[in-house]
Design a protein around this nucleic acid. Structure first.
Ligand SMILES: [Mn+2]
Ligand SMILES: [Mn+2]
Ligand SMILES: [Mn+2]
Ligand SMILES: [Mn+2]
Lengths: 256, 256
DNA sequence: CTCAAAAGTTAGTCGCACCTAAATAATAGT
DNA sequence: ACTATTATTTAGGTGCGACTAACTTTTGAG
């Protein structure tokens, strides 16, 4: 029996190459937490290739009607492209979740592994993983996992930089771009669902002092240690997204 | 951060392409249950490519000193090639075992999935899988899983065709080349470790009548049903490998 | 408003892994 | 021993996804 060709059968029934799958996935994900237009150079940086390579691939995806692109303008997914990008995001995040839940990965280790596996596993395996995890709706970093039908549950979160002194919020997402930052935050006990209160904004980007409250200790009735107070730099602040404490958001809205 | 290049980092630290990995794996595995020389046309059939493609790739593997090959002669692995081929076999079979044990795959479904995943998972993931399974030494089809140090435990098995009427043996391996055959045997309750007794060899390749004994019922004390008697054709007989019942092998040896 | 810098595209090239067609070597039948 | 068949290699070519270098368009600073 013939050994299967590489890349031909990993994701869905489509004949898209792994590289094309990555393009669609990255373009789709780009507009989840930001509305900045997707440009050639941004994609080149993100994918680690030369801008000319991006131009070339975008040309091909355009002629496949998966993206819209007029030369020198920004890049957008067509309906079909959006579907495929979203499907790849689902794959990526389900795999990340599985690696943490079943194989004991740390949250900074899953991204690289998922980046490859997302193109390799069959739909059967994806469904088994989804079932075993109980159809999770967010990944280890708080990013939403699109459902099989395309449903997406986006938390109403803002970067920590948006909070003023005295404000607090529940961590809903941590940008998984930088594994080093993830390990750093892990050491600081910054996790999903923990409560963060902004104590003091320091001047001239020299950081912000915050207080971390482990949050889901409700299950463990252990005596809660004094909430640690730490200083976070700008890179960390923009990577941590929180859902504002509701009543505070309201008073703030009236306040400012 | 740059998205990782495909195929560069999946297996081990080597820079071998997935295709090269498949060649080394297939050549290695070819000599596990047979000593037939590995030829260009055999590889072409096995890998589903044209013979000229094999010539070309063998040329490249030769110049990488992973195989020995003089034109028109048979193909053999070098020491280094053997190591890498064996490492890929380990990957493949650990993945197969994992899919059955953790994701509920049937034994006829695992091969295609493992064929792709073997190139995609990291060493970290391979080790986690190995640990979770408890360092298994054989895969769902009875093929040996080489240890991390290269240790291989080969059962002393022969194809069912070797047995005479009255002989019996314990199923130690079923060739996983044909998923359809695997499903067929599954339906017939032919499993690893079950006892098979040859009842009658029918003339002119019209099959052999055998008796299946479920074997590892020692755990379940259920009343054992009468051993079913079935007829197996030649393809099935050569695919099922059994370890001869020891005393019978001895008497046979004196007998014949 | 101008024009230099930045962003993007085009042109040409490369290695990989495949193919078909043609040439050559090995093998087997008479 | 000769030759027909089969096995294998060589030659030439394709598409993909990358690159560099050169060119064009857009942007924004003064
Ligand atoms: Mn990827
Ligand atoms: Mn993630
Ligand atoms: Mn493979
Ligand atoms: Mn197997």
């Amino acid at each position: 029996m013939a050994v299967d060709a590489i890349g031909t059968e990993g994701a869905g029934e489509s004949a898209l190459s792994p590289v094309m799958q990555d393009y669609l996935k990255v373009i789709y994900a780009a507009n989840e937490w930001s509305d900045a237009p997707v440009t050639t150079s941004w994609l080149a940086r993100r994918l680690g290739v030369a801008p000319s390579s991006v131009s070339n691939m975008i040309g091909r995806l355009t002629s496949l009607e998966l993206v819209h692109h007029r030369p020198y303008a920004s890049i957008e997914l067509t309906g079909e492209g959006q579907q495929m990008g979203k499907a790849m995001v689902r794959r990526h995040r389900l795999i990340e979740t599985y690696l943490v839940a079943e194989l004991g990965y740390r949250w900074d280790q899953v991204h690289a592994e998922a980046e490859v596996l997302e193109h390799a596993i069959s739909d059967l395996m994806l469904n088994r993983i989804d079932a075993k995890l109980g159809q999770p709706t967010r990944d280890p970093h708080g990013d939403p996992i699109p459902g099989p039908d395309g449903t997406v549950i986006m938390p109403d979160a803002v970067p920590l930089t948006e909070l003023q002194a005295g404000d607090s919020g529940v961590v809903a997402r941590i940008c998984d771009d930088d594994p080093v930052l993830l390990r750093y935050l892990e050491d600081l006990d910054v996790h999903l669902d923990c409560l963060i209160r902004v104590i003091e904004q320091r001047p001239f980007g020299s950081g912000t002092q915050v207080e971390i409250v482990p949050a889901d200790d409700s299950t463990t009735g252990s005596a809660r240690a004094a909430a640690p107070s730490i200083v976070l730099g700008n890179e960390a602040l923009t990577s941590i997204w929180v859902v504002r404490d509701p009543q505070q958001a309201a008073t703030r809205g009236a306040d400012g």
